[in-house]
Simulated assay, not measured.
Amino acid sequence: MAKKSSMWTPANIVTCARVVFVPVWLVMAEVLGGPGAGGIAVFVAFCLLSLTDKLDGYLARSRNEVTTFGKFLDPIADKLVVIVALCYLLECGAPVSWALLVIVAREFLVSGLRMVVATKGIVIAAGNLGKWKTATTMVSICGCLLAMALANTPTVAGPLQTLSYALLAVAVVLTIWSGVDYFVKSWGALADDEPEDAGASDASGSDASDAAPTWDDAVALAFEVLEAARKRGVHVGTAESCTGGLVEAALTAVPGSSDVVMGAVGSYACSVKQAILGVSGDTLASVGAVSSECAQQMAEGALEALGCEASVSVTGIAGPGGATPGKPVGLVWFGVSVAGQTRTESVVFPGDRAEVRLRSVMHALGMLKGALEG
């Protein structure tokens, strides 16, 4: 019973209502659509349908009720609204077939990419490009519907229709751009024929299929990181969540590290991630703390918070609990920021909590060393 009540939050109810109302709106458009009051009613109904996307997002964040069900259903509802509306416009003779083709093709490709990389424990979350793409598409569709309703007033309908098609062209560009962004984020997983946990040893020596590293291994690797930082003439800092400061501990275990290490931000709580490191509340609400976006913002925030030129971030699920769909125990996201460039990657580590944390330390140090030497 508790599980059911936790799923049926106000935000999720709004999202479900949006899905249910889509076929109702289509029937309404088929019956009432066209010039005149009926077309205005169709336009207003679609505007309200579009605005529910903002409403359910606001409810989820403001009430701290972001759920797995909501993350699953909300993007599907958005796509359903857009595709049904474009199909209706196409049926009415609007030249939107090219936009419909691009949008549908992009959704198929992105869904496929997400499924493939999910098998390696990597979650590719929606970014700001996707949000702008959806918003621009919705606005352009609203403009097309209003232009159809005002067809008897050509001095208004003509320019409005031209503007709407221009916005739709922008939406298509954003659709392609966001699709390429997904592909770039997935490239590492697509190009690697080995399981994700078998590819973690390149720089850190923390191959998830090897024997667990020791603390002495971490300190030895930390020594190499410090030497690389000295050669480059930079200071380093860390932003750590699941490792709880162990990366900094390995660095400061090396005698003389004070000339390089500026410190660490132990951002175990999301509130600290926001307040100290500047992680966006929208990021935490939409994709969570264990994500590429959060790792990137943690690493970049550490540069400013600690006054260093190089940083590494760690955020993950060390276990034994905390797993969610698409984010298993052992999933850790890393970010490294050096010379204005930030890179993120994830690994799913085996072992118990202590082993996951130590492997994470090794991987973080390896990423930082590689970035400093690169």
Rank of each mutant, 00 (worst) to 15 (best):
M1A: 14
M1I: 06
K3Q: 10
S6N: 09
I13P: 15
V14Y: 07
F21S: 04
V22N: 09
P23A: 04
W25H: 04
L26E: 07
G36V: 02
G36T: 06
G38Y: 06
I40D: 04
V42Q: 01
F43H: 05
V44L: 00
V44K: 01
S50N: 10
K54Y: 15
L55I: 10
L59Y: 01
R63P: 03
T68I: 06
D74P: 09
D74A: 12
Y88D: 00
L89N: 09
E91M: 08
G93M: 00
P95A: 00
V96I: 08
V96P: 01
W98K: 05
L100G: 02
I103C: 06
I103W: 03
V104A: 11
A105T: 13
E107S: 08
F108R: 03
F108T: 09
S111L: 05
L113H: 05
L113P: 01
T119A: 13
T119F: 01
G121E: 02
G121V: 03
A126M: 05
G127K: 14
N128L: 09
N128D: 08
G130Y: 05
W132I: 10
T134K: 09
T134M: 14
T137P: 00
M138Y: 03
L145A: 02
A151Y: 02
L160M: 14
T162N: 12
V170T: 11
A171V: 06
T175P: 03
G179M: 08
D181M: 11
F183P: 13
F183E: 08
F183L: 10
A189D: 04
D193G: 15
A208W: 12
A211S: 13
W215R: 02
D217Y: 08
V219H: 00
V225I: 03
A229P: 04
A229R: 06
H235L: 13
V236R: 00
G237V: 03
S241F: 12
C242Y: 01
G244L: 05
E248G: 04
V260T: 06
G263P: 06
A264N: 08
Y268C: 07
V272C: 09
Q274W: 10
V279P: 01
L284S: 08
A289K: 02
A289D: 09
V290C: 08
C294G: 00
Q297A: 12
E304C: 11
A305I: 03
C308P: 00
G319W: 15
K327E: 11
V332H: 14
Q341N: 09
T344A: 07
V348W: 15
G351V: 14
R353G: 01
S360G: 02
S360T: 09
L368Y: 00
G370M: 09
E373Q: 15
